[in-house]
């Protein structure tokens, strides 16, 4: 709890956050970008290849509420892999 001690303190969502912190409880966040269990995704490999965050996550900075900006299906992944000359070996992600 850094900024939100001072910013938007009366906002109901921020109040939830502060209450959880004071009570020493963690918040169960709803995952926006969930991948199925049979897909292995390594953020590091993508960062290393200079894929910008917004390529997958969209312009989070301008979102009021974070939404998924792509449908994350395999065709979408493979298109990008192909365009960038990354591996399109099935087993790279499915193992």
């Amino acid at each position: 709890m850094g900024c939100h001690r001072y910013v938007l303190t009366s906002n109901p969502e921020i109040t939830k956050l502060r209450r959880a912190w004071d009570a020493g409880k963690t918040i169960e966040w709803v995952k926006v970008y969930a991948l199925p269990q049979f897909v292995r995704f390594n953020h590091g490999a993508h960062a290393l290849a200079s894929v910008s965050c917004d390529a997958c996550h969209g312009d989070v900075g301008s979102m009021n509420r974070v939404v998924r900006s792509t449908d994350l299906n395999m065709g979408w992944c493979v298109t990008c892999h192909r365009d960038r000359g990354a591996s399109i070996d099935c087993i790279a992600c499915h193992h």
């Binding site: 020493g24 409880k25 963690t26 918040i27 169960e28 966040w29 709803v30 995952k31 969930a34 991948l35 199925p36 269990q37 449908d71 994350l72 299906n73």
Partner: peptide, 21 residues
Amino acid sequence: SSAALFDQCSPTGSENVIPYF
């Protein structure tokens, strides 16, 4: 993750993440 991950065939299902306090 609190939701069962198995049998999830599309990326549309919702699940929760519990971070470290």
